[in-house]
Amino acid sequence: MKQQQFKITLGDDLRAKLDSSIALNQRSIAEEIRQRLEMSFDIQGDGHTLDLIYAILFLAHETMRDFGATWWGDERARSAFMAAIVDQVMSYPISPSDLAAKPLITLGTREQQASPEDPPEAIGRAIARNYRRRVRPLGLRSDEFDIRRFRQLMQNEEENED
């Protein structure tokens, strides 16, 4: 694939953020910009999910302001943060057309597949464990995270759904 160069102008604040990020992530400025652009395109297609991402960032910030601690550093802050996320998720209306029961996607071995009788909470915990098993090894910190590998995992999942 042919690569093209672009000349862009950045304000001082944005350039300072970018400089800080490339130092933290130990990437070139070009690679940092590429990864950030790829991430932005990954989330643009789903408005509710994009809104939830922004909400989570806001809720994390507000939790830190209210408790004087991060959600991952204090048990009370964590409980408040979880309640805020649940409340936010529940605020999104479900469209009547989405209420029709849809069959569960059958992936993995028979033992790994969810069944219609499984409670949603159990399926949700399994989804979270799958995230930790497949995605978190790509890096918990941003300097370890490989956006290309993440996108590849997501594309492989979408192909399996078709």
Score class of each variant (00 low, 15 high):
1 M>W: 10
3 Q>W: 05
3 Q>L: 13
3 Q>I: 10
4 Q>V: 11
5 Q>K: 11
5 Q>G: 05
9 T>G: 10
13 D>A: 15
14 L>F: 11
15 R>Q: 11
16 A>V: 05
16 A>R: 04
16 A>E: 15
17 K>M: 04
17 K>R: 13
17 K>I: 00
19 D>M: 04
19 D>W: 03
20 S>M: 01
22 I>W: 04
24 L>T: 15
26 Q>R: 12
27 R>H: 06
28 S>H: 04
29 I>D: 00
29 I>S: 06
30 A>W: 00
32 E>S: 03
37 L>E: 01
39 M>Q: 11
41 F>P: 00
44 Q>C: 08
44 Q>K: 03
45 G>M: 01
46 D>H: 14
46 D>Q: 08
47 G>H: 04
47 G>M: 02
48 H>P: 03
60 A>D: 15
62 E>N: 12
63 T>W: 04
63 T>N: 08
63 T>F: 02
64 M>S: 14
64 M>F: 10
66 D>H: 14
67 F>N: 02
70 T>V: 04
72 W>Q: 10
72 W>V: 09
72 W>A: 13
73 G>D: 12
73 G>Q: 09
74 D>G: 01
74 D>R: 00
76 R>A: 15
77 A>K: 01
77 A>W: 01
78 R>A: 13
78 R>I: 03
80 A>N: 08
80 A>W: 13
82 M>E: 12
83 A>C: 04
84 A>N: 09
84 A>C: 02
86 V>M: 10
86 V>Q: 08
87 D>Y: 05
87 D>N: 13
87 D>I: 05
87 D>H: 10
88 Q>Y: 02
89 V>R: 09
90 M>V: 02
93 P>F: 00
94 I>V: 15
95 S>A: 14
96 P>V: 04
97 S>A: 14
98 D>N: 09
100 A>V: 12
100 A>K: 09
102 K>N: 08
106 T>M: 11
107 L>P: 12
107 L>C: 09
109 T>G: 14
111 E>L: 09
112 Q>G: 02
112 Q>D: 12
116 P>Y: 08
116 P>D: 15
118 D>N: 11
121 E>M: 05
122 A>W: 03
123 I>W: 02
123 I>C: 03
123 I>D: 00
123 I>A: 07
124 G>C: 04
124 G>N: 07
129 R>C: 04
130 N>F: 07
132 R>H: 09
132 R>W: 03
134 R>C: 11
135 V>T: 13
137 P>L: 02
139 G>N: 02
139 G>C: 02
139 G>I: 01
141 R>N: 11
141 R>V: 07
142 S>K: 06
143 D>M: 04
143 D>F: 06
143 D>A: 12
146 D>P: 03
147 I>E: 00
147 I>H: 12
148 R>C: 04
151 R>T: 05
152 Q>K: 06
158 E>D: 14
159 E>T: 09
160 N>W: 05
160 N>L: 08
162 D>F: 06
